[in-house]
């Protein structure tokens, strides 16, 4: 690591000693690459125990070649999430001030250990096809990863850090959900990165955490992409945050760092049409084999200029100023951080 920048040292080549005898349907097709009509996303990889997915065999293989140092955090996470739901206090606390409640909940999330917290209304785009959840709101929470550990991408040290943070953020989500249920409102924690119900990124974008980057991951002003997400779904009335523009597109359109550093060349230079919407997208069929080979890769999120510690605010100001947006007029991070 030099000046906070990470340059992966000798990442393995995108050559694989594993493969399919009967290749599954393209993950890009399942994800809706090139589709012009809007529809909800479908599960393709990372099953959480539901019906087998098209890429199930590779997913199972991924789990079995994961080192124990990673797997132990996966198990720890699942153990915590046994308490993701629970009984609701029959004495319901009345909420007269939804804005005040949102502030209180975000403060509680921070006290429990979250680095980012925001509220959004649950939309269809954040739910997998065929899934309905009995809640109106999502409290997205983010937790930063240890940059020193993540500097080892795409090695096991970084993969273990990713899963450690998922375990820690689940702990926060479970406790926050419990506090809300104690207030007499239903709430359920979602901390499993393999969730079969919700997509964390659309919720976090709507909660004002940041924007989707060229590498297909969230970019926040505070931590770039060096953080992980969880959520609590609830009916507790709260004022919602708004999506923010921190200038991610402005940089991603000219920056090629993740593109050039991606060993399997999976990152597109331009936005793609995905389920009726132009957005940044990563070629699933190229990314996932390398992701599996390296126990979770993560090169793109760590080489991203936004992920350099303390760089985000100045980068955002610079990008927005170039476009003529008065710095400080956006509310990026002002409430979510």
């Amino acid at each position: 690591m030099k000046n906070g920048r990470i340059k992966p040292e000798n990442p393995p080549p995108p050559e694989y000693a594993f493969g399919y005898r009967h290749p599954p349907r393209s993950g890009n097709e399942i994800n809706g690459l090139g589709e012009s009509t809007r529809r909800q996303p479908r599960h393709v990889f990372h099953s959480a125990g539901g019906p087998p997915l098209d890429w199930q065999a590779l997913d199972d293989f991924f789990g079995l070649i994961s080192p124990w140092s990673v797997l132990r955090h996966v198990i720890g996470n699942a153990w915590q999430l046994r308490n993701k739901d629970g009984p609701v206090n029959p004495e319901q606390r009345e909420v007269a001030d939804a804005a005040g409640m949102a502030i209180e909940i975000k403060e509680r999330a921070r006290q429990l250990g979250a680095d980012l917290a925001g509220v959004s209304r649950i939309t269809d785009g954040a739910l997998y096809e065929g899934i309905q959840v009995p809640f109106k709101y999502a409290i997205s929470i983010g937790m930063k990863m240890d940059r020193e550990q993540m500097a080892h991408v795409p090695q096991v040290t970084a993969a273990a850090e990713v899963m450690r943070v998922y375990k820690e953020i689940s702990r926060v989500a479970v406790r926050l959900a419990k506090q809300i249920r104690n207030m007499g409102w239903p709430a359920r924690a979602y901390g499993n990165p393999n969730s079969t119900d919700i997509l964390q990124i659309p919720l976090a974008v709507n909660a004002g955490f940041g924007q989707l980057g060229k590498h297909g991951s969230m970019i926040s002003k505070e931590f770039g992409s060096n953080f992980r997400l969880a959520a609590v779904l609830t009916d507790l009335p709260m004022a919602c945050d708004e999506p923010v523009d921190i200038g991610v597109d402005d940089l991603c359109l000219s920056c090629r760092r993740c593109v050039t550093d991606c060993p399997p060349d999976a990152i597109f230079d331009e936005k793609q049409l995905i389920r009726g919407e132009k957005r940044w997208y990563v070629d699933f069929d190229k990314c996932i084999p390398y992701f599996v080979k390296t126990n979770g890769c993560a090169i793109c999120i760590e080489v991203c200029p936004w992920s350099v510690p303390d760089r985000g605010p100045s980068l955002s100001a610079k990008m927005l100023a170039k476009r003529g947006v008065r710095v400080g007029s956006d509310r990026a991070g002002s409430e979510s951080g």
């Binding site: 099953s47 199972d60 789990g63 699942a78 999430l81 046994r82 739901d85 629970g86 009984p87 499993n192």
Partner: peptide, 13 residues
């Protein structure tokens, strides 16, 4: 290998 995402456990004894 699949992880565990078991059903909701609300209101259980």
């Amino acid at each position: 290998m699949r992880t565990v995402d078991n059903a909701a456990s609300a209101n259980q004894s």
